[in-house]
Design a protein around this nucleic acid. Structure first.
Length: 462
RNA sequence: GUCGCCUUCGUCUAUCGGUUAGGACCCCAGGUUUUCAUCCUGGUAAGAGGAGUUCGAUUCUCCUAGGCGAUGCCA
């Protein structure tokens, strides 16, 4: 069994494409079949190598590995040419010299009359030998096919016209190339976005005309933006790689995407293995879905909380490099991640949190500082400095005990000491459990930062 | 315009004729917590509209409306 993902390289791999790729990939994996990647680059005006690279990068990051390919349609022009010639020879296709102007006028007229805008067959029997090549679509009857997600679809041949299969420069067009490729590559399942539903009957006629067996079709609903409009740049990040940059784990994105349009009862979290095991095209929804960043964020946090720690280390590495955070000197990154993982929605947030363990800062967040570093706090900070300077066993337990001691001696609640201490340690006030954080930051840096806080307080005193 | 596809809480969805229409995200309230976060408890919120079939429709049929797609020498 074989299925394929066939993007056209006219931009990066976007969310919708990634979801299609995922479903196709899952279906292939589930059947223990082959997943083929084919680049549909017949439109040479718009196709770029940069886009091909971007698509490949996106798929690699998501872990959607392909068993065959990438095949490029531009490498197969001879084959398409032969098929087109064959169709002409068998009188199943013909040349047409109608000008774009004539065609446009025709469309306008038909539309004005309230009729279907389609080619009128002007050149059908002229026996021309140049121009575009059109496929002779059957005039009667209808095309019926059973779509794995949409069910039975029935289209009258009257609605279809003689579509162009070769441009006037001889290059083949999409509807011809897909059919030839899917046949030659022995694709059993054509799974793609439902914007292709309307092309399917035309393609079926091509298959039939060529005497080829039909693949099974499955048309996936589109992904819309939060406003219900087709997902586009104005909805924010649509490129898959932008999600890596924003600190998402690939498995979180995959999990989000698989649940957008597919479900298995009430289950929300799926490992990739579970997806493969449970995925069914018949459980794919017919209706389009809206992309919802909040839910993705929630899933990302779930994955950050539960992921294998080494995996997290590996994934975080890219962000650490990106932000030039050197973790080779200082506490074990594993411990730092464990201290941070429950409070990070993204790896970018986590990277921010990591900084305080490896980098010194020279100022406190002004808003927090003005609130926390009051003159009344001075004796508390001084007491902490005194006791910590003496502390031999720099462990979270001891650190915690001392905070408690100071609170008792000064007759204040834990928060009165804990809050300023947290701000002194982090500079921002955003940090986890202070004892654990202080242990990881280390004695030297903790004392330095407490002294910095003390300075701050004595300065506002003046 | 014409043709095709689609329509359950704000969002993602469950339901395969009989349910107080369930779950999840978000939001709100309460609890745990040295802040935040995590965690726990609870809450708000839905079958586009109209006919029909049926003892009974969210579920089946039809109509209408709305959305999306196609109508390209794009894919």
């Amino acid at each position: 069994m074989k299925s394929r993902f066939a993007p056209s390289p006219t931009g990066y791999l976007h969310i919708g494409g990634a979801r299609t790729a995922l479903f196709v990939w899952l279906w292939a994996k589930k059947q223990q079949g082959q997943f083929i990647l084919r680049i549909e680059d017949t439109d040479r005006e718009r196709s770029t190598q940069a886009s091909v690279d971007a698509i490949l990068d996106g798929m690699q990051w998501l872990g959607l590995t392909y068993d065959e390919g990438p095949y490029y349609q531009t490498d197969r022009f001879d084959r398409y040419k032969a098929i087109i010639q064959q169709l002409i020879d068998e009188d199943k296709a013909y040349y047409c010299e109608c000008s774009p102007e004539r065609l446009q006028t025709l469309r306008d007229e038909l539309m004005a009359k309230g009729e279907k805008a389609k080619y009128d067959g002007h050149c059908q029997h002229k026996n021309l030998i140049s121009g575009v090549v059109r496929f002779r679509n059957p005039a009667e009857g209808n095309v019926v096919f059973s779509d794995l997600v949409k069910g039975e679809i029935n289209v009258h041949n009257k609605e279809l016209d003689d579509l162009i299969i070769a441009r006037s420069d001889g290059t083949p067009t999409y509807n011809l190339t897909v059919v030839v490729d899917d046949h030659d590559m022995e694709i059993d399942y054509v799974i793609r976005g439902d914007d292709h539903i309307n092309n399917t009957p035309r393609q079926i006629n091509l298959y039939t005309s060529l005497g080829w067996d039909l693949p099974t079709f499955a048309h996936l609903p589109m992904i819309l933006g939060s406003d219900g409009a087709r997902l586009s740049k104005r909805h924010g990040a649509v490129s898959v790689m932008a999600y890596r940059d924003a600190g998402f784990l690939p498995e979180a994105l995959l999990n989000y995407l698989v649940r957008l349009g597919w479900s298995h009862g009430d289950q929300e979290v799926f490992s990739v293995d579970e997806m493969i095991k449970l995925f069914e095209l018949k459980n794919v929804n017919k209706a389009p879905g809206s992309f919802n960043q909040e839910k993705l964020l929630w899933l990302n946090q779930e994955y950050i909380k539960t992921a294998d720690i080494q995996h997290l280390v590996d994934q975080l590495d890219w962000h650490l490099n990106e932000q030039s955070v050197d973790v080779s000197q200082g506490p074990d990154i594993v411990k730092v991640i464990n201290a941070l993982r429950e409070r990070s929605k993204t790896l970018v947030e986590m990277t921010q949190g990591v900084k305080m363990f490896y980098q010194d800062f020279d100022r406190f967040d002004e808003k927090s500082a003005s609130k926390q570093f009051k003159p009344a706090t001075q004796p508390i900070i001084e007491a902490l400095i005194a006791k910590y300077t003496e502390l031999e066993d720099w462990s979270s337990e001891e650190i915690h005990t001392i905070v408690k001691q100071v609170c008792e001696e000064q007759g204040v609640g834990f928060g009165k000491a804990g809050q300023p201490f947290r701000l002194a340690l982090s500079g921002t006030g955003n940090a986890g459990s202070i004892d654990v954080v202080a242990e990881l930051v280390g004695k030297k840096r903790t004392l330095a930062r407490l002294n910095m806080a003390l300075n701050y307080i004595t300065q506002i005193d003046d």
